[in-house]
Design a protein around this nucleic acid. Structure first.
Length: 703
RNA sequence: GGACUUGUAGCUCAGUGGUAGAGCGCUUCAUUCACAUUGAAGAUGUCAGAGGUUCGAAUCCUCUCAAGUCCACCA
């Protein structure tokens, strides 16, 4: 053996052998009980980042259970990542001086598909570098035909059940990207904008958006506000920049009497709150801004102006007419921004497909409260429940081409909608008019929300449903995990599955924290502080990187990348290596493997301590306490086994003590294998059997 | 506005009712005898602050301060 463990020579060779021998497939343990984890699908077009490296905990669980003899499946997959990918592609187009508007829908889709196909596979290579024992033969993609069929089918069933409906709702629309975003995709930022105090007949109200006044269909006051009691229910004659007009006064509790003058203009087509007020008071909706971000004909002479231009013009004209009471230039408020381009989100009314969430959420709440699904660490349960208890209907339409096109068809003649499970409809069933397919695609989360069922069903692996563990970053708990629970249960119920325990998509939710840069700042491309895990693997070895991510940080907490820790873990792999080297070098010439009788007190103590360690590590892993399992192993291997025991046994090696030494070391290797698969496997080949593998050896269990 | 997380040795972090811990760094010694070293010994902390519960609090409760995150969003 070399004096130093050289990870570079070892890792690639070993991973290749594992894969070739089929050790990653559940069939390696043909009679074992099923145990499965679905890898959160990675962006098909993406590269590895530190979020992915944290999936090492899944590999630990998988390797642990595989060694325990379970038929273990860790299923990889990729996601088409609709908005994200189209955004990246459009950026590329812009750099080439082109725009998506230069192409038809079909052309654009083909181009993006080609672009993604060319860039695919990169991340799979990188996940291999981390040593992940994924069953690559079952890899799925959200755009696989059979996955799409399941998504279609679910959509149709939801529609038939009345859980999908079409409605004109305000959407978070980005007039620059030309698409709507979910609530979760809108980011909020504080901005300082002028607050205009405008005269509406006898009333004065404060607004930041005077240009939307042409869409006002009422003004509102608080029902208990003494100042305005005489106006409630009346219609006011008001003077506007477009001449005389009338407007109704309504009373609604949402108005804060302390803000501004306590009077609010109601613009249902361009404000989320106003939309709800309008709903309660049956007010008409007047859209004055178009999807291109310009004012429309309802804005009279301001038609064709962009929002900002219109605001300036309207204010100037109002000032000329004496309609502006005052302007508060120091007003600070939070406005919604597009998370992609950082431009203000415009609430606009658009016909969309919505999923009625309340009935689905109710079940998802119930399964967690009944502990059919458990969330680790438990603190995250509150976030999950908070999200589901306040859930709003889910807008699943996206105005992008890169995605699964919604299988809904509208009759040109009579306006009838028909939803199919993917089949094309050309003629209207009612009037024989021509049917046209909805241009929109599904929200990416609508397909990934069906991921556990879709992947297992289409790989003929349904015996692994529900998955034992869903492990992911806590940041996508509502976006993804909650939706998988809701859709998973729904799908299984529709399949006629009655037992809750078989409806849920997974049993345990395990959430890891985020990895920040060494200064504790979130890694992001825009900050330029992104660190590529592959570079660290090259430098420290995959085992050291894996161990460093687990060791010394409470599971679920964020951590900052630490170079000293990586270095310490690299030394640990080297220490392990040299323990093996010692054992190899000190083998008694007449040593017989079967010699087992323990005669020395210290040898006896060691074999007892090893049993305790094995129990402790198993118990910690069963609780998803990876950190303490790792700490125990590190502490024991280095300080109990090497510093004390090896030092002690060094000068008195005989057949009996050597047997204890070697067998104890084997247990340490086995317990460490899920954490550090490469170095442990390599040592096993050298000290034990070259043709066999530690990864499919038996996990040490002592009763 | 609602909630969550974090604040412990110079740095990165464990520790959740019983005399303050690890790694790195630092000091001293030993060693090149499995270990691009390793081992032994050592120094270092008003456990963010204040109050409370308790025989006893880093740990439980309340409040304050600071950093970060999620959700909802007031014209």
């Amino acid at each position: 053996m070399d004096k130093v463990y050289n990870n570079k020579d070892v890792e690639e060779k070993i991973y290749k052998t594992w894969e070739e021998k089929g050790y990653f497939k559940p069939e390696v343990n043909p009679t074992g009980k099923p145990y499965s984890i679905i890898l959160p699908p990675t962006n098909a077009n993406g590269a590895l980042h530190f979020g992915h490296a944290m999936y090492v905990v899944e590999d630990i669980l998988i390797r642990y259970h595989r060694m325990k003899g379970l038929s273990t499946l860790w299923l990889p997959g990729t996601d088409h990542a609709g908005i994200e990918t189209q955004f990246v592609f459009e950026k590329k187009l812009r750099e080439e001086g082109k725009s998506r508007l230069d192409f038809t829908r079909e052309e654009l889709f083909k181009m993006i598909k080609l672009y993604v196909d060319e860039n695919r596979g990169g991340i799979e290579k990188q996940l291999r570098r981390l040593g992940f024992s994924l069953d690559w033969s079952r890899e799925k993609y959200t755009m696989d035909k059979d996955v799409i069929e399941i998504v279609y089918d679910t959509f149709k069933k939801l529609f038939d059940d009345g859980l999908v409906y079409r409605a004109k709702r305000l959407v978070n629309y980005c007039t620059y990207d030309g698409t709507s975003f979910s609530d979760l995709e809108v980011i909020y930022e504080e901005r300082q904008n002028p607050l205009y105090y405008i005269k509406y007949g006898p009333l004065i109200l404060a607004t930041t958006r005077p240009e939307t006044k042409f869409g006002d269909t009422a003004v509102a006051v608080h029902p208990d506000d003494k100042r305005y009691q005489q106006y409630i229910g009346k219609e006011l004659d008001i003077e506007t920049v477009l001449g005389k007009s009338k407007i109704k006064v309504v009373a609604d509790k949402f108005v804060d009497p302390l803000f501004g003058t306590g009077v609010v203009k109601i613009t249902p087509a361009h404000d989320f709150d106003d939309f709800e007020v309008a709903d309660r008071h049956d007010l008409p909706m007047v859209q004055v801004i178009n999807f291109d971000g310009k004012m429309n004909e309802k804005a009279g002479k301001y038609e064709g102006l962009y929002i900002k231009q219109a605001r300036r013009a309207v204010v100037e004209d109002m000032q000329a007419k004496g309609l502006v009471e005052k302007i508060d230039e120091n007003y600070v408020h939070r406005i919604g921004l597009c998370y992609k381009c950082k431009n203000p989100i415009e609430p606009l009314p658009l016909e969309q497909w919505f999923v009625k969430m309340e009935p689905l959420a109710r079940q998802a709440i119930e399964v967690v409260k009944k502990e059919e699904i458990k969330i680790y660490p438990k603190d995250f349960e509150k976030r999950y429940l908070q999200f589901l208890e306040n859930i709003k209907d889910w807008n699943i339409s996206r105005q992008i081409v890169w995605g699964i096109r919604i299988p809904a068809f509208k009759c040109e003649k009579c306006g009838q909608w028909e939803v199919t499970a993917g089949e094309v409809r050309e003629k209207c069933g009612k009037c024989s008019g021509k049917m046209i397919q909805d241009e929109d695609t599904f929200d990416t989360w609508f397909s990934s929300g069906q991921w556990p069922y879709a992947t297992l069903k289409t790989t003929d692996s349904l015996k692994f449903y529900p998955a034992n563990v869903m492990e992911t970053g806590y940041d996508i708990l509502p976006w993804w995990v909650a939706r998988m629970v809701m859709l998973g249960i729904y799908i299984q119920k529709k399949q006629g599955v009655e037992r809750i325990g078989e409806q849920i998509p997974f049993k345990d939710v395990v959430l890891h924290g985020l990895v920040n840069d060494p200064l504790g700042k979130k890694m992001s491309k825009s900050k330029g502080n992104v660190i590529n895990p592959i570079e660290l693997i090259d430098q420290y070895g995959a085992d050291a990187v894996r161990f460093a991510l687990i060791y010394g940080t409470a599971f679920g907490n964020d951590q900052s990348l630490s170079y000293p820790k990586l270095e310490a873990m690299r030394k640990f792999t080297n220490k392990l290596w040299n323990m093996a080297r010692f054992i190899e070098m000190t083998k008694p010439e007449d040593y017989i493997e079967s010699e087992k009788k323990i005669t020395n007190e210290n040898d006896n103590e060691m074999s007892e301590k090893i049993k305790q360690l094995a129990k402790e590590v198993a118990s910690l892993l069963n609780k998803y306490d990876f950190n303490h399992a790792a700490q125990n192993l590190y502490e024991f291997a280095w300080h109990t086994f090497a510093d004390i025991y090896i030092e002690d046994v060094k000068n008195r090696i005989d057949n009996s003590s050597y047997s204890v030494l070697k067998n104890s070391y084997l247990v340490i290797l086995k317990l460490l294998h899920p954490f550090m698969p490469f170095v442990t496997e390599e040592i096993y080949h050298i000290l034990w059997k070259e043709g066999e593998s530690l990864m499919i050896s038996e996990w040490p269990i002592y009763e």
